[in-house]
Amino acid sequence: MQRRRFLAALGVGAWTGAGLALGGYGRRSYAGESLAGTPDLVAIRNGEPEALFDHGIEALGGMGRFVKKGQKVVVKPNIGWNVPPERAANTNPRLVRRIVEHCLQAGAKEVYVFDHTCDAWRDSYRASGIEQAVKDAGGKLAPGNSENYFQTVAIPGGRRLRRTQEHELVLGADVFINVPVLKSHGGARLSVAMKNLMGVVWDRGEWHSNDLHQCIADFATYRKPDLNVVDAWNVMLRHGPRGVSTADVMNMRSQLLSTDLVTADAAAARLFGLKQPEEVGYIRIAGEMGAGRMDLENLAIRRIVL
């Protein structure tokens, strides 16, 4: 067992090293795009999920800006559904793996990955490929499907959602990284960063029956992830959030990174093909409530094409 783990660790190390070297991670400069300070949003296209993240996080100041030595990191991908990665209903496992690796390289003591899944957690963790990805990267998979893990929290700025039950891992994390997948959504129009946070609360039905858009925005005023990474490598353009087949999916090879989840959602809405982010109820409300900024034209955006 120990030997196998050691070999796996060796493999991961070698793989990561090779990936970093091949991808030119840490060497590339972005002359001509330089802005004062770090950008509010990094939008990056035309690469594999790992390369997109390597360059995206560098443009945002590197993972060291977010994760300090010895910290406890919680990564929250979308693992809602019992479907394989190519269906793009869940966050791409390659991206999750890369993020966990970056966190550990930055000195994180432990990196937890979890979701309160829609389908049965065992099936969803496995089918999404994220269970394997997290194991390979050296992270820890945690369960989110028992009410025991959730603690009641107050949402002081909430209009409809005044209190809810939030997962203890998020409450106890030094760093919280939100890794949604961009996809269509029958009820909420789009599922991106704010919608992904429905997976850190226990009672989702309550949100549905209590003005969904308002509840999503309310929660965004309370829980602000340290970093949002929107996986738009494969994008489910219709039939979301579960999708029916791979025919619903377009390979957009993109990624968005922002510390502001409203900004991430607004940019994602545009990327998805919506004319105005305000077409999505919760983005409009969250912007109005000041949960974040959706006025993309006034923000510092770094655009990268690999």
Binding site: C118, H185, G186, G187, H208, N210, D211, R242, G281
Partner: peptide, 16 residues
């Protein structure tokens, strides 16, 4: 009844 968005049924439907 509430005149708010929901779509929970659509969300879960595997065949649309």
């Amino acid at each position: 009844t509430d005149h708010t968005a929901c779509g929970a049924c659509d969300e879960y439907c595997p065949t649309k």
